[in-house]
């Protein structure tokens, strides 16, 4: 089923564009060029953060931290191997990407852990960054219950990601 999903989305969008007499090809090219700009800003960050994450992994710190947190994570059905990702995801998007890529490489992209990591990355956001950008722009000083509510949403995301992967794969 999911095999045809992406090609179908591609075809549908192109057909819709042709029906509207839009230059589908040129728009795709323009968008792809924007993607390249995005990648250019992402590159230095990812190089630095993957260096830091690889160091953290090689030092053995990750295993120590994961082992300490394992009982809590197991309690909620979250694989303890993902502990580091869960901790960093709300704070830094690119660090989370670096950790996620590292975890997927080590445990295998198609393993339960690899897939759980992918679903976690795909269904959560850099919560603290988002909050600071929006409140900063709106000039808000009293944030009331936003932080706890957003963190609850994140926590639900992490547990449901672990659950759906176990059920669907």
């Amino acid at each position: 089923m999911t095999d045809y999903l992406v090609p179908l989305i591609l075809l549908t969008v192109c057909c819709l564009a042709l029906r509207k007499k839009e230059n589908a090809y040129n728009i795709l090219i323009g968008g792809a060029a924007d993607g390249l700009k995005l990648l250019l800003t992402l590159t230095p960050t990812l190089i630095l953060l993957l260096t830091a994450v690889t160091m953290l992994r090689a030092s053995g710190a990750v295993e120590v931290i994961s082992a300490y947190l394992a009982p809590i994570f197991r309690c909620f059905g979250i694989p303890p191997e993902t502990a580091i990702l869960v901790l960093i995801r709300p704070i830094s998007g690119s660090a989370a990407l670096a950790i996620g890529a590292d975890l997927m490489t080590r445990h295998g992209v198609d393993s339960i852990i690899g897939r759980t990591v992918a679903v976690m990355l795909g269904s959560t956001e850099t919560t603290f960054y988002t909050i600071s950008v929006y409140f900063g722009a709106a000039g808000i000083k009293k944030t009331r219950y936003t932080v706890p509510a957003a963190l609850i949403a994140d926590f639900v995301g992490f547990t449901v990601a672990s659950l759906t992967v176990r059920l669907l794969f």
């Binding site: 989305i9 819709l16 564009a17 795709l28 090219i29 968008g31 993607g35 995005l38």
Partner: peptide
């Protein structure tokens, strides 16, 4: 990434 930012731009243009 480039492919999907392209598709995203097209989705927007098409009126999705």
């Amino acid at each position: 990434i480039c492919l999907w930012t392209g598709v995203g731009a097209l989705m927007d243009k098409v009126g999705l």
